[in-house]
Simulated scan of single mutants.
Amino acid sequence: MISVMCVVQEGQISTEVQFALRAAISAFTQRAFAAAADIDWIVVPKGSGFTAAAPSTAMIASMHANRRLKSGERTALLRELGDICMEKTGLSPNEIVTSIRDPQSTESL
């Protein structure tokens, strides 16, 4: 499983768009990592999450990879994830934050 966290402002994403985005992210993790997505959908309540004294329109999509990624591959995957989020939500590139982290090493430094 690929752990995915999506953070959005309350009322920003309709239920229909949320389901479409979940499906697209699940297809992405299957394609990129050969693993299903375990999506934690976090809604920031109205009255919280401000940017420049206005309600935030930003969305965060963050996940943990199941293998180490080389820089070029990470860049391509981040671009694809961002494109998925923009396509499904209609948000601009300035409103979407994406992150893909490598698995944590259990070795001592």
Rank of each mutant, 00 (worst) to 15 (best):
Q9R: 14
V43N: 05
F28I: 05
L21I: 01
P45K: 05
M86E: 12
V97P: 00
M63C: 09
E107Q: 11
G49L: 07
F33R: 04
S71Q: 10
G82M: 08
M5I: 12
F50T: 03
Q9Y: 01
G49R: 07
S99N: 15
Q12L: 15
T75R: 13
K70I: 13
V97D: 11
A65E: 02
F33H: 04
V17N: 00
T75C: 08
I42S: 06
S99Q: 13
K88A: 11
M1R: 11
S26H: 09
S48L: 11
S14Q: 04
S48M: 13
L81Q: 08
A32D: 01
P55A: 05
P55H: 02
V44E: 10
L21F: 01
E107F: 13
Q30N: 10
K46R: 10
T75L: 14
A52S: 15
E87N: 12
A32K: 08
S14R: 03
F19M: 09
S62M: 07
T15P: 01
L69E: 07
F28Q: 07
M86N: 01
I100T: 09
L109Q: 13
S56V: 02
I39C: 08
Q104T: 13
G49H: 05
I25S: 09
I13C: 02
H64F: 11
G47R: 03
T98L: 03
E80S: 15
